[in-house]
Simulated scan of single mutants.
Amino acid sequence: MTDNPIVSSRPRVSCIICAFNEAPRIGAVLAVASAHPLLDEVIVVDDGSTDGTAEVVRRFPSVRLITSPSNQGKSAAMAKGIDAARNEWLMLLDADLKGLAPGHITALAAPVLSGAAAVSMSLRENSLLVFRAIGLDFVSGERVVSKALLGDTLNEIRGLPRFGIEVFMNRRIIARRLPIAVTHWPHVTQARKTEKLGYWKGMRAEWRMIADLLKVTYPLALLSQTFHLFSLRVDHASRVPFLVRIRKPRGNLA
């Protein structure tokens, strides 16, 4: 991957990172995101952390920190970040990524900034085996989308279950038939809840997250979402160089 792409006239990108008790992990993500030339601003929404996450974020002066007095869940935190973002494109990153490098951010942004796709999604090294087998992680937390896709639905997003934002976003992508690029991140992993909380607490947290997904949509609908998202996937690998050439993306982004 090219870590220092030459980027000419381009749309501006706001990066949104939602975090809850990620002090041991978020610094590594911010070290990459805050210095990346494609990201015009980096916003961290600290969702009521009690472990010093905010103090870690403050070590990065260029990063904008938004704090919540209590933990409200990823959906509500994301709504705050989207509302605060000032640019037309949003890069959404999880705070607990391991192995993230500048080239991964470039690769995630390039299909959208070049116009090869209207949405991009990551496929991490430790995504579930079934997702890696089909080449699509429908609940990926690393995406590039337009602010127009979500900006007029903030009240609805605030009312979602704690971990319902990705499924909600998928619905809007599918409804608008937006072309999707899947970006493979072969050396990037996400810390599992069992790693953060211990086995039993982590398993309970994983099941609570699954329950939230099922509150947003039914199991068969999740399978349907995966099918529809896969049908929207575009092959961008041979068409998108890291020297980003800008043209208007296909699809209705409003």
Rank of each mutant, 00 (worst) to 15 (best):
P69G: 13
S34M: 07
V32T: 13
L65P: 10
L65W: 08
A23W: 04
G52R: 06
N21S: 09
L38M: 12
I43A: 06
P61G: 08
T53H: 02
V42A: 13
T50M: 01
D40M: 08
F60A: 02
I16C: 09
N21Y: 01
R59T: 11
V44D: 05
C18R: 14
A28P: 03
S68R: 15
T67F: 09
R64M: 13
E55G: 04
S34C: 10
A33N: 05
V32S: 02
G48E: 04
A23F: 09
V32I: 15
A28G: 08
D46I: 03
E22Q: 14
A23S: 14
A35K: 12
V45N: 03
G48H: 07
N21W: 00
L30K: 11
R58H: 13
A31G: 15
G27S: 04
T67Y: 05
T53Q: 04
A23M: 11
I66C: 06
E41M: 12
D51P: 00
D40T: 15
A23E: 08
I17C: 06
V32L: 05
A31E: 15
S68D: 11
I66N: 03
A54I: 12
V57C: 10
G27N: 03
G48N: 06
H36F: 07
L30T: 11
E22N: 08
D51T: 00
S62V: 14
P61C: 10
P37W: 01
F20E: 01
I43S: 08
A54R: 12
G52Y: 05
P61R: 08
R59H: 10
V56Q: 04
I66T: 08
T50V: 13
L65K: 08
A35C: 13
H36R: 04
S62D: 13
I66V: 14
I26Y: 01
R64N: 12
D47S: 06
D47F: 01
D47I: 04
I17F: 04
D51M: 00
F20T: 07
L39D: 00
P24F: 10
I26D: 00
P61D: 07
L39C: 10
L65E: 07
R64L: 14
P24D: 04
D47Y: 02
T67Q: 15
R25E: 11
A31H: 15
P69H: 14
H36C: 12
T53M: 02
D40Q: 15
T53P: 01
I66W: 09
I26G: 01
F20Q: 03
A19L: 11
R58P: 04
V32W: 01
G52T: 06
E22K: 05
D47Q: 07
F60T: 02
D51G: 00
N21T: 00
D51E: 05
C15P: 02
P61W: 06
I16W: 07
R25D: 11
A28H: 14
G27K: 04
P69Y: 13
G48T: 02
S34Q: 14
A54Q: 12
R64C: 12
P69W: 11
P37V: 13
P37N: 10
E55W: 03
C18E: 09
A28W: 10
V42M: 05
T53V: 04
L38N: 00
E55V: 13
D47C: 02
D47L: 02
A35Y: 06
V45A: 08
T50E: 01
I16P: 01
V57S: 02
G27Q: 07
S34G: 11
S68Q: 15
V45M: 11
L38Y: 00
E55M: 11
R25T: 13
